[in-house]
Write a protein that binds this DNA or RNA. Sequence first.
RNA 1: UGGGGCGUGGUGAAGAGGUCUAACACACCGGUUUUUGGUACCGGCAUUCGAAGGUUCGAAUCCUUCCGCCCCAGCCA
Length: 560
Amino acid sequence: MTIDSTPPNKNFIRDVIQSDLENGRVDGVVTRFPPEPNGYLHIGHAKSICLNFGVATEFKGRCHLRFDDTNPAREEEEFIEAIKKDVKWLGFDWGEHLYFASDNFEQLYEWALYLIENQLAYVDELSADEIRKYRGTLTNPGEDSPYRDRPTSENLDLFREMRAGKFNEGSRVLRAKIDMKSGNINLRDPVLYRIVNAPHPRTGGAWHIYPTYDFAHGQSDAIELVTHSICTLEFEDHKPLYNWLIENLPTPSQPLQYEFSRLNLTHTVLSKRLLIQLVKDGHVNGWDDPRMPTISGLRRRGVPASALRDFAEKVGVTKSDAIIEVALLEHCVRERLNKSAERRMAVLRPLKVIIENYPEDQTEGLNAINNPETPEAGSRTIPFSRELFIEHEDFMEDPPKKFYRLAPGREVRLRYAYFLTCRDVIKDEWGNVKELRCTYDPKTKGGNAPDGRKVKATMHWVSAKHALAAEVRLYHHLFSSAEPDVTHDVVKEINPNSLERLADCRLEPSLKFIKNGETVQFERLGYFCSDPDSSDSALIFNRTLELRDTWARIKKKPLV
RNA sequence: UGGGGCGUGGUGAAGAGGUCUAACACACCGGUUUUUGGUACCGGCAUUCGAAGGUUCGAAUCCUUCCGCCCCAGCCA
């Protein structure tokens, strides 16, 4: 299992486990991550995965992967596979402990009969609408169903017939007999089983009735001998029901539920409903669109799993509603990538430079360091020639005070190459700068002047005739508002410019061999990775994240 | 107006009667180093803990009242 450098922070879950271990409530830790296979995992799930698996390894226990597949109307095999892939990629291993709530359908059914026999459950023939009416409101108590006190044998017969598929969907449900007047609505005779006639991804057409979350989750925990069932805050109200079922059923163990607050992130949405909508309505290009907060989207974007783990640790685990700034995620990504990503040179918006005093047909190989943070990464050779491309925004004809890149008459350093001086600016008929005529100083090879003269800027570049053409996709926040208002229409909140495609980028030749899934740094620009859409004939790169950019800040400030 | 939960800086989050004129991290603001305006490094950033009372020699931590925010009325999870 994955061990990260970040030391675990203290949180109440760890405290509880620690004391449960010390006072003997449990003698080992078993947790579980219980996704419903009705969509892809997102970064909020990553928090839960890291917590559950993290805490399990920390206390030398284990963590199960269990699919809560109790609603065949929504669940699909595709999601099961995608979820497994994401959990693995995140660096966690459930070993032998892959489970499905559906594995327990037979046992759950037996327990339902057990409840009926103990007069703790009954078959209700009220319609969904009527049940709602009988349930009362938040402030008014509910009323007992007229079917509540039918004889056990009748309940048994009816329930068996439900299983046999004798009834229509919605015509009958099995309900727990608890308390229609409870202040906790979950205790007002909650539905335990409903009739669903949809094929189940695992059990096919074997069943006509399916347990609800409440009737499946806790018992599955108990069957798997889970000791700490960790879930999010909205299940807090369900805990009394969770416990009621465990107390009234002959389960093999008595797990306890603990709740923490779910992750919220600025500039995005993290509700499954909304993410499904973004995908279905085509506002993004699938679940793994690099703008998506899904694990698959982040992976495609070039975010390393280790950064996600760091992030999950840094956000903390509490019960208070919190909105984490994306900046924290971005920090974790940069921190990891700065250490691991090899450096390359690429020009996103090319501006042609002709070095007038450089021999026409000469090419020389220059040595460039792969990663200054990691000397073991070694170095590579990059070609230099008379015609280059530099970044368009690295040149200004009439530069403001604090701009110290290239300008007419000014000398700068080309990284790993030579000092370069701008002699002439060539413009098109519209007055746009389209080419620079420069000279270089042959004595500055490698980037230093023997006379000791200094230069204010070092710029990246690419040799025109050796460069690779590529498309580069730049991503911006999916929502420009930090906290998008999703109460009405998410679509209105979407940032229309979240994807920016640059079709004419130029890369240094070595980028041809970049491994899939490897994220590199384009010097001075940011972190990039090759997109799965990329091919030998059409290179495509995604920008994971920009480097921190002090110059951009200076530009924005007044009084430059 | 029923039940449950939560309130510590811009954002998270430690702290649970004295070591708190409140850790740490992100963000932000300055500065140093630098062949990435990156990285690294140094410094700044809550006399105050939702509010008001009270207990105490002493409170963010205990008590009382009040205020605010979140969740629950699916045969979703």
